[in-house]
Design a protein around this nucleic acid. Structure first.
Lengths: 341, 341
DNA sequence: TAACAGATGACCAGCGCTGTCATTTCTATA
DNA sequence: TATAGAAATGACAGCGCTGGTCATCTGTTA
């Protein structure tokens, strides 16, 4: 019913203190003792009483996730990954939706951290791309992990989980090239999101590698929205020299492009191939289903939390501490680019 | 920096225990004592330590929200409402995504409640419609509030927040009738969701009130998915006697119907009016935008949490306890049914 | 095999608060 | 005015855990 540290100790045949040592990952616990304790913990499904830990030690056992993202699917996936990791480590997750554009957002975040005594924070875009947030957090000495778009680990990015949009975009573009397309257009997302820039760069790099100079008219600025895709595709298909393929910066834009093409009676993928990015649930529900790139957001979030715990836990072995996870979204070929029938 | 109950006690010239009494609004504290303590609390900006309260009292200061819903937008809105209410009352929210169809879901919920010492639980469909969950929760004496589809408050539903799908569906159907449509079809959602039944009933009631007998061929069984809408609309438009309007059980189905109609070169809304339900974000992004019903999910969630706190808090005035909120989703007319141009 | 380092346990205090029960203070009644 | 009885308040233990301090035990090395 209610499993306490005592139960674990007697089940493992060790003292309470040793269980506590294991729980707090203190050094000088022999491997087999550690295993015994872990086994007992698993067997009894022991979950430390966060309140008691909190009270006894000054440190806290909850981390925060602040978000401001209209993409509910992304947020839900993130939460799920964070929740998994938290459960595993006996942490709690404090969720805080807010407005990133609020003028006193920095103060709000600091208040949150201090009032709720958070052990750390997980930041996703746009927060992870706001330098003043990072600075403020560093100043008050709170651990945080950022999930950002990037491809090359570097010491400066030691507390980051990287999502390699560049390489994924490169792969999608390559897929289009391999299908024989050479006139490939790109529908951009919001400029202020670094992911948009990374994806554009990946697209350009793939073309360049094939000896194709990207046609400036084929690169259409826009935003991460359906409407943007509708407009962008329309604009492209009114060009005297039309592209034979469109790579949209995310699925929503791609869906808009799809819609636009359909209005103009353009057959997909025969006359025009369209690819998206993100693998959002509806990318499978468009017709034809969208070729896209799958971001393993749940896993990304888990890793981010793990990284945070490593940083936040005292006595954690610093050996492992600094490997930086890089995730490359995976190419998912569906009917919007490949002709199956 | 860190103000404890001791500080408040000495500042107010009373014992720690009395401060505690004030904090928990226990009876039998004299008015002037109460005021003295409150003054001290304000003066020192005292904030009770949640961890300590948790540990000392058996009761907890967190409520849970379990969900299993593919509609991320719904989940996010619920969370936001619950979070608001929790913040207001000094509670924390424990979020628990899970699988409602798991064979030992009841045990899982019970474990969750007991291990995390939850003060209560907020249940949305499908959990709110599972009688064995409610029974189990009652048995272990945990407070819970259900958000369910229904129109008439009743004592049996004392711990429910009702969403009046019936009336909302009635209003949508009426809107279609007022536009002159008489051949109105209905695309059902999943049978096992009571919302689908309620909406169907509202549709039928509206027709009947106008003296129209619903044509059985116009009522198409289905599920809450895009594909279902695609199929349903196709089926309807292949009928010898076609409907002039379709009321889909939710926006996703409506989007599918829209898609289908477009494939068949049917002009929306000139040749066919289509209405959805739920006001999901993409209902504005279809073309034409969908007429739908808006459910104020954030507010609904807030109310649910408030109701839960009233039930869960000891010593709360029981006077207010039993008013039952009923929400009627609001009709949102957009271009998929009204001809604006 | 001595000598030492590393691993573990026993024990205690205390985190900030609440529950229980004893004590004090007030109120109503004869 | 005395006094039972209720109301208000306080003293104290303890929630489950951690941190610290030693004492003990085990394993390793020269």
């Amino acid at each position: 019913m209610k499993v306490t540290i005592n139960d674990v100790a007697s089940h493992a045949g060790v003292s309470i203190k040793t269980v506590s040592r294991v729980m707090n990952n203190e050094p000088s616990v022999r491997k087999d003792t550690y295993d015994k304790v872990m086994a007992a913990i698993t067997a009894l499904q022991y979950q430390p009483n966060a309140a008691a830990r909190n009270l006894a030690s000054s440190r806290s056992f909850s981390i925060g996730y602040i978000y401001d993202n209209p993409n509910a699917y992304y947020v839900i996936d993130m939460q799920r990954g964070l929740l998994d990791a938290c459960r595993k480590h006996g942490y709690e997750l404090l969720i805080h939706p807010t407005n990133a554009k609020s003028p006193d957002i920095v103060q709000e975040v600091i208040d949150l951290v201090q009032q709720s005594r958070l052990a750390g924070l997980v930041l996703t875009p746009p927060f992870s791309e706001m330098p003043h947030i990072a600075e403020a957090l560093e100043k008050i000495g709170v651990h945080f992990v950022r999930i950002i778009s990037g491809s090359t680990p570097s010491p400066k990015l030691s507390n980051c989980v990287l999502v390699d949009d560049f390489t994924a975009a490169f792969k999608i573009t390559n897929h289009l090239l391999e299908l024989g397309h050479t006139d490939i257009a790109f529908l951009c997302g919001d400029e202020e999101h670094s992911s948009s820039g990374e994806r554009l760069a990946g697209y350009q790099a793939a073309l360049t590698k094939r000896g194709i100079t990207p046609n400036p008219k084929f690169i259409v600025p826009g935003s991460y929205s359906f409407e943007s895709g509708v407009k962008g595709a329309k604009q492209l298909m009114n060009l005297s020299k039309k592209p034979s393929a469109i790579f949209a910066c995310n699925d929503e834009i791609a869906a808009g492009a799809l819609f636009s093409a359909r209005l103009m009676n353009i057959a997909i993928p025969q006359q025009l191939a369209i690819a998206g990015f993100e693998n959002s649930p509806f990318s499978r529900q468009t017709w034809p289903p969208l070729t896209t790139a799958h971001q393993p957001n749940v896993t990304i979030a888990q890793q981010a939390a793990e990284l945070l715990f490593r940083h936040a836990k005292p006595n954690a072995s610093k050996m492992l501490a600094d490997k930086q996870p890089v995730f490359i979204p995976e190419l998912l070929v569906r009917e919007s680019t490949a002709v199956n029938d």
